[in-house]
Design a protein around this nucleic acid. Structure first.
Length: 491
RNA sequence: GGCGGCGUAGCCAAGUGGUAAGGCAGAGGUCUGCAAAACCUUUAUUCAGCGGUUCAAAUCCGCUCGCCGCCUCCA
């Protein structure tokens, strides 16, 4: 099976064939650094991080570029509001972005260029477009002439007439065509600026991505990604200006991720219905958030809610418990035996599931990065593992390769998706620690009560024992009676 | 108004022609002094509705209803 990807340009899945065999060049639109990132940004970045990892997993040599838009109206507006230079705003939020992405466990892209560090390249492209007659100067601005580019709107599947009919903004009368867009914007008094052949100004929004992507990846590259909301106008305009400048195909595969919704509505700054990554990570583990974001196909909408995150956490717990069980069995820890079905049957099932798992993982990922299916397969394998362990299979020396194979399969998947990468014990500690912080009872008090209960139980005073358990349960503590000792967890 | 997408069990979700993965929640059982966890069984004759094509449709076509997105900055 070969990798197939959904290409927005053709509106269908296509076999992925890199421009240069064995190598992949991909560019993903980063963020405009004027505020904290929300879960929608988290999704886009996690999704492309997984795509990046999977392509490398396929032994492709990947060059991954993700930019920072560090000059634009919103940054300038915030700078004016705070009375600071614009770059103080952009630098602050670049640092915030980097921190968020690191916490989400993202790999670093090969290059992370900033628009302001590529002004010369931007000016060069704009000059080329003007020279070719695809752009024109109007005062201190330079506009791209959409009528001079035949393929305009080929990505979003619209046409110019319809767009004008639905236009909701006032048209600048200096534009030759209402849809013409700015490549270069004249600086207003007090705004940051760079010198250019057209006077002091700054780049328009779209041109920076053309300049940076082509600088690091060449005039034609494989993958260009971003959120669905970038299809029009951003990516459409990138295609127009890039292809008009080079005369070549700009991008082979356009990939777009779906939105994160709140109550079925798009999470966005303008609607104000967003949660920042920072806020969510205060309540949930970053691995849980990643798992949640990958639990639906990347092109589908994903509804963000407390219940959905809690379910993701419950699912993660199930998987980590199974991993812990495997590790204990492999370490030779004897497991209790107690079963209804036969061990041989469970062993056969585990052998089959474990053997087919890597292949099923590849098939899922090869089908347009179907992480939801891949994670479903993990649960399937986990059930076989649990069953096998529950039947006492972990006690058999000769059955260890089966468990090791399952462990290896999940580890392989985990490395690509960036989940299940912790030691199970470390994961449970993290989750517990986070919850303990919210308790109204001190851990020392819990331990004291557990000791009292142990004494009561050994005296067969179950009544007092149950009393203590109920008391702790009321405070959100669940007691787990093991063969040797009683441990606890937060409900 | 134009263009596009979605509607699968109580909830989340995979499945784009071959007879409904998986998770969460729920119910019953095994285990346990009682619990928890784990395991077993169980929960959609059916995929928004109505027609059509086909030996066969959740999957293709048409219509209807509902929801959402883009058309303005947006991941």
């Amino acid at each position: 099976m070969t990798l197939r990807v959904y290409n927005t340009l053709s509106a269908g899945k296509e076999e992925f064939i890199p421009v240069e065999p064995g190598k992949v060049r991909m560019y993903v639109c980063g963020v405009t650094v004027y505020d904290h990132c929300h879960i929608g940004h988290a999704r886009a970045n996690v999704v492309f991080d997984v795509i990046y990892r999977y392509l490398r997993h396929l032994d492709l040599e990947v060059t991954y570029v993700r930019n920072y838009t560090d000059i634009d109206d919103k940054i300038i507006n915030r700078a004016i509001k705070e009375g600071v230079p614009f770059n103080e705003i952009s630098e602050r939020f670049i640092a915030e972005f980097d921190r968020d992405m690191a916490r989400l466990g993202l790999e670093l892209p090969t290059h992370q260029p900033k628009a302001t560090e590529h002004i010369a390249e931007i000016i060069a492209i704009v000059r080329t477009l003007v020279d070719k007659g695809a752009a024109y100067q109007a005062g201190g601005d330079v506009y791209f002439c959409v009528e001079r580019f035949d393929g305009y709107l080929k990505l979003s599947g619209r046409n110019l007439e319809e767009m004008q009919a639905g236009a909701r903004i006032e048209v600048d009368e200096r534009k030759r065509h209402p849809m013409d867009f700015a490549l270069w914007k004249e600086a207003k008094p007090g705004e940051p600026f760079w010198d250019s052949p057209w006077g002091k100004g700054r780049p328009g929004w779209h041109i920076e991505c053309s300049a940076m992507s082509m600088k690091y990846l060449g005039e034609t590259f494989d993958i260009h990604g971003g959120g669905k909301d970038l299809i029009f106008p951003h990516h459409e305009n990138e295609i127009a200006q890039s292809e008009a400048a080079t005369g070549r195909r700009f991008v082979k595969y356009w990939l777009h991720n779906g939105f994160v919704n709140i109550n079925a509505e798009k999470m966005s700054k303008s609607l104000g219905n967003f949660f920042t990554i920072k806020e969510v990570l205060e309540k949930y583990d970053s691995e849980v958030l990643r798992f949640f974001l990958l639990s639906a196909h990347y092109r589908s909408p994903l509804d963000f809610s407390d219940q959905n995150l809690a379910e993701a956490e419950a699912g993660m717990e199930r998987i980590y418990k199974a991993l812990a069980g495997i590790d204990e069995a492999l370490a030779g820890k004897p497991a209790p035996v107690g079963a209804s079905a036969t061990l041989a049957e469970a062993e056969g099932e585990l052998r089959e599931k474990g053997a087919s798992f890597p292949e099923r993982f590849r098939e899922a990922m090869d089908d347009d990065f179907n992480t939801a299916l891949a994670l479903g397969n993990v649960f399937d394998l986990v059930r076989s593992v649990n069953r096998f362990l529950a039947e006492g299979g972990g006690n058999k020396e000769e059955s260890r390769p089966l468990l090791a194979a399952a462990r290896a399969g999940i580890r392989e998947l985990g490395e690509v998706l960036g989940v299940f990468t912790s030691e199970p014990a470390a994961y449970f500690e993290r989750i517990k620690g986070r919850k303990v912080a919210q308790l109204t009872i001190a851990p020392e008090e819990i331990e004291r009560l557990i000791a009292e209960r142990a004494a009561a139980r050994s005296a067969r005073d179950f009544r007092r024992g149950d009393e203590i358990r109920d008391l702790l349960l009321a405070k959100g503590i669940v007691l787990l009676d093991g063969p040797q000792e009683t441990t606890w967890k937060v409900k």
